[in-house]
Design a protein around this nucleic acid. Structure first.
Length: 802
RNA sequence: GCUGGUGUGGUGGAAUAGGCAGACACAAGGGACUUAAAAUCCCUCGGUGAUUUAACAUCGUACCGGUUCGAGUCCGGUCACCAGCACCA
């Protein structure tokens, strides 16, 4: 038989579709498996081979689970709101809706050409009003529980997108999406109080099976730290509250620093004798973008506040107060006690401004650098703390501060609340109405979905207002509460909104009464296995865990973590080992590979290319090996004999292969699962023939990787009238994995000198006796004294000589 | 700087739990078949040095040291690279 992949693949894709073979059963009693991949953003560029890794891997897992008797849910949808589509639409003067439809069509075609076993009847898209109705509904619930609030604040503003960004979307002062500079701008924004969930988002990581890489990144991002707020008296009636994780060094605090935005500066305008200088510094700090602050402004700057000072609560020394932009207004209290001897930044600042450096933890060399160790050193110059370790001193001073009402324990997080509004057209409208009398009033649930108005011009505005602000007939409404004239919120939600709960909609995508039927929710959630990219660890993964926990709190879902298990695939780089992107010109389209070698070869290669969790470079040459393997598999037709059973000489090999493939797929070691199948095929070819049972088992194992050609062979051999997805995954017998005889290594002093074939039943004594007859071993031991004889079962013996 | 991870042939990568390093492929070289090419099949393929009626010795998993009968794997140190965070007090 020729390997006519083009017709074979077309034929079976049609059969699967017609027989609805991958449709998830609406049956809540079977054992279930919910496999999830991150639903794609349908860009105009189409999919490249790097995108496919996750879909194929989860497809392999899901196909196997189906054969193991699970009712499998493997859904797909489109995360379709977003800036690239909107920008493309503006540039080409088409409606984003049309662009989206076109892109989805292309994505759908590409995914279907690969034979991924999605249940296409549950397809969803976030831009569908019947979908975003529920995104808006969740927002209203958040608003109702005071977890959505509007706040005038300094936000990240992308100069190119003309839009606000969340902290998570700013990478090193640069817009994550367009790589343009991000500046700070004061705007009134909708915020979600994700910080209220910070502790739970850390704690509950213990309940889930994520790789340590993911857990660590999430923990780092949330950034919990435990310390104490300390009150410093001043020569005014105001106290300064500082936050410190090292109160043990309080005796070494020689000055205070507050952030340029600190409100005490406004309170003190009359007392400050160098206000002009201070104001000038404040203006400078304000103009600096995040980019400048992080990349250029490592040199410490600041201004001493003239006319005011603080008192160190334990030494009673007068401490000067500075403003400096190395203290952030958004973290802690926006003020610090500087301990130059034991903090690098304070040290640098103190050196520059010639401030006192007092050692309070011995062990360092202060003429060179600050001594920041917490695990070692001893307290000195610290009165009642002298002689203690920093750890013990910390406990003691906190107790002292608390008893004397000079401070209180405090936990802080680096995580900030989620900036939730965007000044763009192509997103979910925020269902809030502003009334001069009643304030922010929610749109009634019965009015949802609040649809995006159809307009012709949706360019972002220079003023930073949403394009929706221009449509007076849309924004001018009456207040739902009092009936007075009122205005709609014109900002839209960020792209992360729709993807924060999408997996719940898959359970019941057509329901028009609730976001999903409760029975379905209870049956299918949590998700059994979610695979996606590392780049979403601090964005999508954190946001969706937050929303899920919220939905748990309001009784929509019955568990408090959405993903039982989360894994990440390594990125596939282009052949030049750079990230695949159109601008670099190194993308590889699946369409070309499918046309030349077929989907099965592409699928196989994607899984064979390397360690699933590691970054790999695409290598066009590597495909031919997988293609050749499939052709050799097809060729089994030509060497098959009519004998039925597994042949004795291959029995152990087959059982070992079943075991290995079964276990490797669960561990995501797809590459070694495939190499096992390659080896097994090589073994079969050595015998120059194959039995029906051997073809049957081999086909079942291979079918999850290469579903089309295996279906064809299955039919050619007429093993059954069922399709492979309806068949049973083969079992292995641990006993039958063992071979009757095998080779072990003979070592002398740990070096391999010879090999020997033994029979399974032989004892250590028998083996040793025989080993010592080996010429090469005899040569080594000669007349030397044997100290020890080690036998590692079925592996080796080692004779240790003096 | 901090946190996490990685380092194995010309290349991608294997190597349960400390037990024969280099599975499985790619590339390369040689051969068979062919008018030729493609396809297919067979052989070689870490370095060095022997041997060629014999298939042996020796080194080798970033580097230095340690534990062990035995280390790619464990421990200590060094270097390099990747990812995330980055003035978070």
């Amino acid at each position: 038989m020729e390997y006519d992949f083009e017709n074979i693949e077309k034929k079976w894709q049609e059969v699967w579709e017609e027989k609805k073979i991958f449709k998830t059963k609406n049956n809540f009693s079977d054992k279930k498996f919910f496999g999830l991949i991150e639903f794609p953003y349908p860009s105009g560029k189409g999919l490249h081979v790097g995108h496919l890794r996750t879909y194929i891997a989860m497809d392999v897992v899901c196909r196997k689970r189906r054969m193991m008797g699970y009712n499998v849910l493997y859904p797909i949808g489109w995360d379709a709101f977003g800036l690239p589509t909107e920008n493309f639409a503006i540039k080409n003067k088409v409606h984003p809706q049309k662009v989206t439809e076109k892109n989805i069509k292309n994505f759908r075609r590409q995914l279907k050409s690969l034979g991924i076993s999605f249940d296409w009847e549950r397809e969803i898209k976030t831009t569908d009003p019947e979908y975003y109705r529920w995104t808006q509904w969740i927002f209203l619930k958040l608003f109702e529980k005071n977890l959505a609030y509007k706040k005038k604040m300094s936000v990240n503003w992308c100069t190119s997108c003309k839009c606000v960004l969340a902290n998570e979307e700013v990478i090193g002062g640069i817009c994550e999406r367009c790589n343009h500079e991000v500046i700070q701008k004061v705007k009134s924004q909708w915020m979600l109080k994700i910080t209220a969930y910070a502790q739970r988002l850390i704690d509950d990581l213990d309940k889930v099976n994520y790789s340590s890489r993911i857990k660590n990144q999430q923990k780092n991002w949330i950034g919990k730290s435990e310390g104490v707020d300390i009150f410093f008296e001043t020569n005014t009636e105001d106290k300064i509250k500082v936050y410190s994780t090292r109160p043990d060094t309080l005796f070494g605090s020689t000055y205070l620093v507050i952030s340029p935005e600190h409100e005490l500066i406004n309170t003190w305008t009359k007392k400050l004798d160098n206000l002009v200088e201070i104001e000038k510094y404040k203006q400078q700090a304000k103009r600096k973008s995040d980019f400048e602050r992080t990349k250029l402004a490592k040199e410490k700057t600041g201004v001493k506040l003239g006319g005011v000072f603080a008192i160190n609560p334990v030494t009673k020394h007068k401490l000067p107060i500075f403003i400096s932009d190395y203290v952030l207004s958004s973290y802690g209290t926006g003020a610090i006690m500087a301990v130059p001897a034991h903090d690098e930044r304070d040290y640098e600042f103190a050196k520059k401004f010639n401030l006192a450096i007092i050692e309070v933890v011995s062990g360092g060399n202060l003429s060179k650098q600050a001594y920041t160790a917490f695990e070692s050193g001893t307290l000195v110059n610290s009165d009642f703390l002298n002689g203690l370790s920093p750890k013990k001193a910390k406990e003691k001073i906190i107790l002292f501060l608390e008893t004397n009402r000079l401070g209180e324990r405090k936990t802080n997080f680096k995580l900030r609340d989620w900036v939730f509004s965007r000044q763009r057209y192509w997103g979910e409208p925020i269902p809030i109405i502003y009334c001069n009398r009643c304030g922010y009033v929610p749109v009634s649930e019965t009015q949802l979905p609040l649809e995006l108005p159809q307009i012709d011009s949706y360019e972002p505005t220079e003023t930073g207002e949403s394009p929706l602000a221009k449509i007076s007939e849309w924004i001018n409404v009456t207040c739902p509460k009092c009936g007075a004239k009122a205005k709609r919120e014109t900002d839209t939600m960020p792209q992360w909104a729709g993807s924060s709960w999408y997996f719940i909609r898959y359970l019941d995508p057509k329901n028009d009464e609730v976001l999903a039927n409760k029975e379905a929710i209870n049956h299918w959630l949590p998700i059994d296995w979610y695979n996606g990219g590392m780049e979403h660890t601090t964005l999508h993964l954190l946001y969706s865990r937050f929303w899920y926990k919220f939905l748990y709190d309001v009784g929509v879902v019955s568990t408090d973590e959405p993903y039982k298990k989360r894994t990440s695939h390594g990125v596939i780089l282009g052949e030049n080992s750079e990230k695949m992107s159109k601008s670099r010109g190194n993308t590889v389209s699946p369409d070309i590979i499918v046309k030349k070698y077929g989907a099965d070869t592409l699928r196989l290669y994607e899984m064979f290319i390397g360690d699933f969790e590691k970054v790999v470079s695409w290598q066009q040459g590597g495909i031919t090996g997988c293609y050749a393997f499939l052709k050799r598999y097809v060729n089994l037709l030509n060497i098959s004999n009519e004998k039925k059973d597994l042949r004795k000489e291959l029995e152990a090999k087959f059982h070992q292969a079943i075991k290995k493939v079964t276990e490797d797929i669960e561990a995501m070691k797809f590459n070694t699962a495939i190499s096992t199948l390659m080896s097994l095929l090589n073994e079969i070819y050595l015998t120059k023939s194959v039995t029906r049972e051997e073809v049957r088992i081999f086909t079942l194992l291979l079918s999850v990787f290469a579903p089309h050609i295996t279906e064809e062979i299955w039919e050619k051999f007429s093993f059954s009238n069922k399709l492979l997805a309806q068949e049973t995954w083969p079992n292995f017998d641990e006993e039958k994995c063992k071979e009757d005889s095998f080779e072990i290594a003979l070592q002398v002093n740990g070096k391999v000198r010879d090999h020997m074939v033994i029979v399974f039943s032989q004892t250590k004594e028998e083996i040793l006796k025989e080993a010592k007859r080996s010429k090469k071993i005899l040569k080594e031991i000669k007349s030397k004294e044997i100290l020890k004889e080690i036998y590692v079962k079925n592996k080796l013996i080692n004779i240790v000589l003096r």
